[in-house]
Simulated scan of single mutants.
Amino acid sequence: MEPKTPTRRSPEAGERVRDAERTKQKLLDAALTEFSAKGYSGARVGEIAARAGVNKQLISYYFGGKEGLYRAMHRESLETEYENANADVPPDELLRWYLHNSLSDPRFVRLALWQALSGETPDDETQADVDIEQERMKRRQERGEIAADVDTAALQLALMGMTFAPTAFSHTARRLFGVDIDDPEFEHRYFSTLKRILGALAEGAEHPQKGNTLP
């Protein structure tokens, strides 16, 4: 008697949804790797699909093509940022999160540098997104965590620069600190100084000193 061939069960609707979400997440992660390494123009959908281990036609199916995938990847990173940078997070903890995130996964910094240098990538960050970030910064200022005379727009840009600097200048950072930027010692030492800078700004709101206000 011949053995019975196992009957293949069609996946249920919930399983199909989970499989689709897993596939999309694989593509988004692979896209971040490819775009951060080669920029928007240099990235190839075939390479992204190969990294994700899926058929490249799924990029068109789920995202409508290369640009749609790039926008979805960028929007996901913005949403993650908003979740971790809400107005209730103190400035030093906010800075800690940005720094740790950029050191543990330099792809985000490299992607931002590609965007800035090439000027040709689709940009999903809107004025409304920037306004939300500024509103949160101003709420911290109202609580006295940031000096009242500090320009919050300049501060936000400066904080971005300070967290991006180790990845952008990793060789210089290595020479200065004697360890690579992915070494916990580097993060500890670097963040300690950044925290002192923020602390000085907060103290300025509580203990203003003559001559410290910029013209």
Rank of each mutant, 00 (worst) to 15 (best):
M137A: 12
M160V: 09
T121H: 09
S102M: 07
P166M: 04
F108S: 08
A173V: 09
A168T: 03
L159I: 07
R140C: 12
S77M: 15
T193A: 15
L103S: 00
A116I: 09
I132R: 10
E187P: 09
A148G: 10
T126N: 04
P91Q: 01
Q127C: 14
V150A: 01
I181T: 02
D88F: 03
E93P: 08
V150N: 05
P166H: 02
D149N: 02
T121Q: 07
R189I: 11
A158P: 04
R174H: 10
R107H: 10
E79L: 04
A116W: 01
R140L: 15
Y98F: 05
H100N: 13
S77V: 12
N101P: 03
L159R: 10
S118V: 02
Q141M: 03
R175L: 13
Q115P: 03
I132V: 14
F164R: 11
A147D: 13
R136T: 05
D105I: 07
P91K: 06
A168Q: 00
S118K: 05
E125F: 15
S118P: 00
E83R: 13
A112E: 06
P106G: 00
D183N: 14
A87F: 15
M73G: 05
D123P: 07
Q127D: 14
D124S: 10
R107A: 15
Q141W: 01
I197R: 14
L69V: 05
P122W: 06
F177L: 05
R107M: 07
F191D: 01
A158G: 06
R189H: 11
I181C: 03
Y190K: 01
D180S: 11
M162R: 11
L113S: 01
Q134H: 07
T167V: 13
S77A: 15
V150H: 02
T80V: 06
G178K: 06
T163K: 04
L69C: 00
A200V: 06
A112K: 11
R75D: 05
K138D: 14
P106A: 04
R96D: 01
D151Q: 00
Q127T: 14
D131C: 02
A87G: 08
P106C: 10
S104W: 09
D183I: 05
L201Y: 08
R71V: 09
A158L: 09
R136M: 06
M160S: 15
A158R: 03
R136F: 03
D131N: 06
A200Y: 13
L69F: 05
